[in-house]
Nucleic acid binder design. Structure first.
Lengths: 233, 233
DNA sequence: GCGCCAAATAAGTCTGACTTTTTGTTCGCG
DNA sequence: CGCGAACAAAAAGTCAGACTTATTTGGCGC
């Protein structure tokens, strides 16, 4: 997924990023650029570029005469899709998934409310199409096909909200839904009630019923929270 | 604010970042590393580091034989605090401020609800202190002092939610509140009703009344939306 | 014990040579 | 005339080495 290995510095990041976000280097740890360059068998120029990227994510801080210091998690750019992917691939994946699901439960109902106001006819059609796709694949272990439509559905809602901050959470939601299907709550078939809610939501948005769209989305995200044993926030 | 000029590549970013986010280079524009290095009078190594950072923010994409291509706004990492600051400093500041305020209106009520559950006694004390500070500076053109307490108040709420994704929005809220005070809605004195809501919110969190904390925060963010002429979402 | 100076250290910068990938063009063949 | 393969050019990518600069540590003298 995404962009694996776009150059040597990318290869370095693929190893170093997950290592840092996994806590292999405790906050305050000091690394040296030259040593890292040797370890990864790349030139210092390449290593410096990698460090610059980590620095822009606030994972590390580079200071003269000191070295490259690992920053505490509280400073990390946790909204960076790359950081999210690294953390989801690591040990505290469950914790991460909970944080993101709570975030969804805050954002998506408001996004759905706005979508009911601003969705274009084309977006409404896409929504219906996605919902039908979910229904069609909701039985018979078609989890992969179901997931595709589920992800597409939520992306359209977020896009249709007309708010770019919401729209950009599409990737995050995709990661959460994919993670749920592949690793965590591996149900045989999706919850029929959830499928129905999506169909009704598509209809509510098409009808421009903002209040109902919001409420239906609250029920959907509530289900997601309950799957992770999170009591309603 | 933040970290101005952390090395040469930082100086380059301070110019190039705002230029790109301001749309001075339309999406699809192609830049060449060597040309940029000459223009900014830095070595190619430094320029490459700057480009790598822009690339990690998805502002540009670097491809062999082509050059550095500017990406469309839809691909930008709009949650990157650096990108947010660049955009708030640019021409579409009002639009940006609206997006962020809508985001606040989705996040903060849920954060307040969680804060009512998880806030430590110390956080409750901080909240009360901030609220009192707001009251004390709500009259007599003490906008600067009022702002400090207002920002601190919302930061404590977001932190106390116990959700790291919420907590990391503290900087964003700070930017929005600061922007409102300094440029946009320059009222003589803060709205007394808003001040009262903050006092009551501090009390609700202390009392552990989740529902009331959420509702009071909805009223606060509703006020913020109305100031920007955004009809309730 | 305090402050100042000097040495050590690691990041920062620059330069030039070389490699690799991709694109566009041209040439030859059907 | 059209199509495909070989070729040439362009720009990023990589590397190595020398030099600069800021910061910290520790020692020296007061």
């Amino acid at each position: 997924m995404s962009t694996p290995g776009r150059g040597l510095h990318g290869r370095v990041l693929d190893t170093l990023g997950p290592a840092i976000t996994a806590g292999e280097y405790p906050p305050g740890s000091v690394l040296r650029t030259d040593e890292l360059a040797q370890r990864f068998e790349v030139s210092r120029s390449v290593m410096r570029e990698a460090v610059r990227v980590l620095e822009s994510m606030h994972l590390v801080e580079s200071r003269r005469r000191v070295g490259v210091t690992v920053l505490p998690p509280a400073r990390w750019n946790v909204y960076d899709p790359q950081v999210i992917r690294w953390r989801l691939a690591g040990a505290d994946r469950p914790r991460q998934l909970r944080s993101l699901t709570v975030l969804r439960s805050a954002i998506e109902p408001v996004a759905a409310r706005l979508a009911a106001r601003h969705a274009t006819p084309e977006q409404c059609a896409q929504l219906t199409e996605c919902a039908l796709g979910m229904v069609a694949n909701s039985r018979g272990h078609r989890l992969q096909e179901y997931l595709v439509h589920d992800v597409a559905f939520h992306r359209v809602i977020l896009d249709a909200s007309g708010n770019e901050m919401f729209a950009r959470l599409g990737d995050v939601v995709a990661e959460v839904l994919a993670g749920r299907t592949h690793h965590d709550v591996m149900f045989d078939d999706p919850d029929p009630a959830a499928v129905t809610l999506h169909v009704r939501l598509a209809e509510a948005v098409r009808a421009g019923d903002a209040a109902r769209a919001e409420e239906l989305t609250r029920e959907i995200t509530l289900g997601a929270l309950q799957e992770l044993d999170i009591l309603a926030p």
